[in-house]
Simulated scan of single mutants.
Amino acid sequence: MGRLSPNQPIKVQERLTPIIGRGDKISFWLDNWAAEVPLRVLFPNLFAIETEKQCKVMDRYTYNQGKAVWFWGSNHTISSNDLAIEWGECLSLIEKVNIQLKDDNWQWKTDAVAENFTVSKLRSELDHNDTLNETRVIKWLHWIPKKVNCFLWRVVLDRLATKEALQLRNIPLTSNSCPFCNIAVESFSKNVIYVSTSFLAYHEFYSFLDSGDYSTVPAIPGYGWIKPSQQFWFQQTSMKLQRKSKAPGLAYFHIPLPEYSSFDSSSYTGVELEPGNPPISSASVNSGFFTTLVGAGDVKAVFVGHDHINDFCGELTGINLCYAGGFGYHAYGKAGWSRRSRVVVASLEKKSNGSWGAVEFIKTYKRLDDGNLTVIDNQVLWTKTPSMKW
């Protein structure tokens, strides 16, 4: 996905060079940490049988007496002589790399010098590089989800509903300031490019999973579910994140869990208007993912779609199970019932030195497309202070 231009673009991947530390942020196969090119290019046969192609460098060694001891960690064994020779060559290469128990880093190469990478350096270079003209052509990538294509298309056309964009459309707002700093105008570049908390929040507590659409098992009719392999990935990722931070987690996927049927109108905020019996269109089997979420302990809220005119949010065993609300006009709704979008607000503590600290609270509300963008159903989903209310 990107803008096509007759000018020479900045090739970010070619300009970035990983500086290996402990290897917890650098990809074993996909980053060029051991040679000028990634290991997947040098050893394609090994990469072809690798079952964890996104694994990090740290996943493939143990540290013993000040030295990294490398091992083959894939589920596929090295069964042929050719593969054994290729693995031997790979070992000879990576054993020359000095693994140190410190943070990984990245260097940004320019024509004159290589220096530590920062977003501000890239931003400064982009500001002085005239690669984007007024003719914008979108290249549609079929190997990423359609929603990601659509989101990036809206980014390119500046069609995200930031306060700056809403004001340009003459929508009245009480304030156009960024909720993080209360100084600058809230815009896409401010919130995503300049605000470091966006990067922190994404990597600390968001989990996005694909529940599919319909069952892929012929003997099981109905809708899809979170598969065992995805649950294993979630458990591993959750454990890694919780070793670094105790930030509360949020999970997003499409098909509601069977546990969404556990509520009645007295135990949730919102409405349940789907006509089915039951009015929750979950999979016909229970994959046990809710139990997995409870066991992990970090996820405080789950957000789903699928049932367009259910918009409720209720708490079950310490986890808020919420619907996103029927938003788009391309799908079914209900006459007289305003389309709506759920907004989730995660607020960080402000430290005495002006920097951002841990997550302080997570709130949610729904905004209606009723001409006034009315806000309804304010809820506190999680807070460090149990007595806090909206």
Rank of each mutant, 00 (worst) to 15 (best):
residue 226 I to Q: 05
residue 159 R to Q: 14
residue 184 A to H: 12
residue 28 F to R: 04
residue 125 E to K: 09
residue 197 T to A: 09
residue 307 D to F: 02
residue 157 L to E: 12
residue 382 W to I: 02
residue 63 Y to A: 04
residue 20 I to L: 15
residue 132 L to V: 15
residue 272 E to L: 09
residue 253 F to D: 02
residue 262 S to E: 10
residue 110 T to P: 00
residue 244 K to F: 03
residue 34 A to K: 07
residue 178 C to Y: 07
residue 231 Q to M: 15
residue 115 E to Y: 00
residue 340 R to L: 04
residue 212 G to D: 11
residue 72 W to F: 02
residue 35 A to D: 14
residue 107 Q to T: 10
residue 213 D to W: 12
residue 277 N to V: 10
residue 277 N to Y: 08
residue 87 W to D: 00
residue 324 A to I: 01
residue 146 K to E: 14
residue 238 S to Q: 13
residue 200 L to D: 15
residue 90 C to E: 00
residue 141 L to M: 09
residue 3 R to W: 14
residue 215 S to L: 04
residue 29 W to P: 05
residue 168 L to T: 01
residue 83 L to Y: 00
residue 285 V to F: 02
residue 298 D to C: 15
residue 238 S to L: 09
residue 29 W to Q: 08
residue 351 K to E: 13
residue 161 A to S: 12
residue 357 G to S: 07
residue 83 L to M: 06
residue 105 N to A: 14
residue 365 Y to M: 05
residue 309 I to V: 15
residue 215 S to W: 01
residue 203 H to D: 09
residue 258 P to N: 02
residue 154 R to S: 10
residue 51 T to A: 05
residue 72 W to Q: 08
residue 38 P to A: 02
residue 14 E to G: 15
residue 4 L to G: 06
residue 30 L to F: 01
residue 225 W to C: 08
residue 344 V to I: 15
residue 163 K to N: 07
residue 219 A to L: 13
residue 267 S to E: 08
residue 289 F to S: 10
residue 351 K to A: 06
residue 133 N to Q: 14
residue 333 G to T: 03
residue 264 D to K: 01
residue 249 G to V: 03
residue 332 Y to F: 14
residue 26 I to N: 04
residue 120 S to F: 06
residue 260 Y to M: 15
residue 390 W to G: 00
residue 106 W to T: 08
residue 266 S to M: 08
residue 235 Q to V: 10
residue 378 N to V: 01
residue 90 C to F: 08
residue 76 H to K: 13
residue 347 S to D: 14
residue 359 V to S: 07
residue 254 H to K: 01
residue 213 D to I: 06
residue 58 M to R: 10
residue 149 N to K: 04
residue 30 L to A: 12
residue 55 C to W: 01
residue 207 S to H: 15
residue 39 L to K: 01
residue 211 S to Q: 03
residue 161 A to K: 09
residue 234 F to D: 07
residue 2 G to I: 03
residue 248 P to G: 05
residue 332 Y to R: 10
residue 333 G to A: 12
residue 128 H to E: 11
residue 5 S to E: 10
residue 38 P to F: 09
residue 105 N to Y: 00
residue 363 K to L: 07
residue 169 R to Y: 04
residue 116 N to T: 10
residue 27 S to C: 12
residue 37 V to W: 00
